[in-house]
Design a protein around this nucleic acid. Structure first.
Lengths: 218, 218
DNA sequence: GTCTATAGATTGATAGAC
DNA sequence: GTCTATCAATCTATAGAC
């Protein structure tokens, strides 16, 4: 076997690994979201991925390793949604963009959101370190930004912490409680128009609620 | 054995049954909240209750029966919190009372709220019938009440459905994500003052957000 | 890298003595 | 009504042929 052949095989193997890992992670995210950590079985994830159960243990050493990778992946996506706090010029635009992005993520990453909610509800046994360091720093930075708006008299004097929790809760509700929302919507998913209306209503109530003019940033 | 003796024994047995059932239900609520349905084991619940595992099966035929009773109990408490919609004279008072009650319930019924969230996130496999009938009727009634306020020009014209979801999401977040909130609060539970401030902030933002004066109803 | 077979541990539930 | 012992089913993880 010459060098070219060896290189080709190495690349091919890397591709197979990457592709299978992503397939397994996607399948695991779905199954963990629908059944919780212990409710999910390696067999279910294998079936979802269309692979024999033993292959999962070839790519991920243990069920918990696979789970941790799923949660880490979501958390990383979560954090990326908040650049608007730094890049926007007005509080109206910063908050509007952040809320719209988080609503969009509830629509596109429903299962990831559920896995995260599950993990936190159970006391974050696997990713407590992320809460204590990464999420904590992230939150403090945003609280400082909101406090500056308050000091400048641009929004009402409220505790920024409760405002952030309100945005997280309201937007993630559309992912975590999607089954309830769909049941109350005649067993149908929200339409494009309903998502748009819900997003606009959430933005509007929060902006007006802290003393901003919702019309100014539409 | 005469009649008096028989009656006494019957009463005693009824008391023991009721007391043990409540003890097991409380223990089960806690364990189901912390580990989910499948993550919870009958052994954990038995240990939490201080009873041998076999006694659980004496009082509840199966794990699923026990779980259903736990979820039903929470749902009933949930529904009771909304009389303010009928008994209050102004939208300010109705919403303020409802929000305050739901915040209080997040504080006092944290575990129940988590079990409910878990059940709904997994597609309500056990209590789907409650969603389709009881919750649906409850929701429609409240939507009609809010629509009347809109028609009378007392609040802004928003879709009442998204307002209700916002209130549910925000208030239940303080129970379901209590671990995250406490981690971001220097690993300490919220103090009385913090609970009061959070409740006031949530009420204030929502009331102002739909065009009401928060000061008018304090 | 894939897959079948199976080991080893845990679980929900029950039998049966007290 | 209480409790010990145990069964049958299920799960994670691995061994070993291909």
């Amino acid at each position: 076997m010459d060098q070219t052949e060896t290189a080709a095989k190495t690349i091919a193997k890397t591709d197979i690994r990457e592709e299978n890992e992503r397939l397994i992670l996607d399948s695991a995210e779905y199954v963990f979201a629908e059944h919780g950590f212990r409710g999910a079985t390696m067999q279910m994830i294998a079936d979802q991925a269309g692979l024999p159960k033993a292959n999962l243990h070839y790519y991920f050493s243990a069920k918990e390793t696979l789970y941790r990778r799923v949660v880490e992946r979501i958390f990383t996506i979560w954090l990326g949604a908040a650049e608007s706090f730094e890049t926007s010029e007005t509080p109206e635009r910063a908050l509007r963009t952040y809320i719209a992005r988080k609503m969009e993520m509830s629509r596109t990453h429903r299962y990831g959101s559920k896995v995260w909610a599950n993990e936190v509800m159970q006391g974050a046994p696997i990713i407590q370190d992320y809460l204590e360091v990464t999420l904590r720093d992230w939150t403090e930075t945003r609280i400082e930004a909101i406090d500056r708006w308050i000091a400048a008299g641009r929004i009402d004097p409220i505790n920024p912490r409760w405002l952030l929790y309100m945005i997280w809760a309201t937007t993630q509700h559309y992912a975590d409680f999607s089954h309830q929302i769909e049941t109350l919507n005649d067993a149908r998913p929200l339409s494009d128009a309903q998502w748009a209306e819900a997003t606009e209503t959430v933005s509007r109530i929060i902006l007006r609620g802290i003393g901003l003019d919702p019309e100014a940033s539409r």
